Simulated assay, not measured.
Amino acid sequence: MGAAWFRFINADGSDADLHERGFVFELNDPLKIDDARRILAGQEKIRIHVAGCVIPQSMPYNPEWSFHLDPASIRFFAVQEHVALDVNMYYVEDHLDQIGSSFLPGRCWSPGDSRLVAEVWPPMD
């Protein structure tokens, strides 16, 4: 099947720029790709939020950010499962040097307000 890329946003829309741009992540696992597509199709209504481990390195499919999510670590969760610090993409970007300490222990980020919005086919330079 290969890789697929998806974009999520800050669901509350409190920051218009963040709401529009969002964050792109890669999936390589066919089951997770199917899960993401089920979320987008409205077939999954509970485990709809995106979580993953932060790697402080930019990727061609998400050039606006200095970090990406480890594709193997991506999971979808229900908001009730949310236990990690709930911050947006800008906050993660601004605090990359602190990730793995008391900020996002284990580098795992699970924004409880994340909402998957699209499957994307980003340009790969």
Rank of each mutant, 00 (worst) to 15 (best):
A78V: 05
M59C: 01
S114N: 05
V54M: 06
I46V: 15
C108S: 07
R75H: 05
G52D: 09
L104I: 05
V87L: 07
A118G: 01
H68Q: 13
F76N: 01
Q57L: 12
H95W: 12
L96C: 11
V83C: 04
E119V: 12
V79E: 11
E81K: 07
G106Y: 09
Y90A: 01
H49L: 10
D94C: 09
F77Y: 03
P60E: 13
I46Y: 07
G52M: 13
L104W: 07
I46L: 15
S110C: 04
E64H: 05
N62D: 14
Q98V: 07
H95I: 03
P63R: 05
V92Q: 00
A72D: 15
D70L: 13
G112W: 00
Y61L: 02
H49M: 06
G100F: 03
Q80I: 11
S73L: 05
I55V: 15
L116D: 07
G42A: 11
R38F: 12
S101M: 02
M59H: 09
D70W: 10
Q80G: 09
G100C: 11
A78E: 10
L96R: 01
I39V: 15
H82W: 04
V50I: 15
P71C: 10
S102F: 13
E93C: 04
F76H: 08
P56V: 01
D113A: 01
E81L: 06
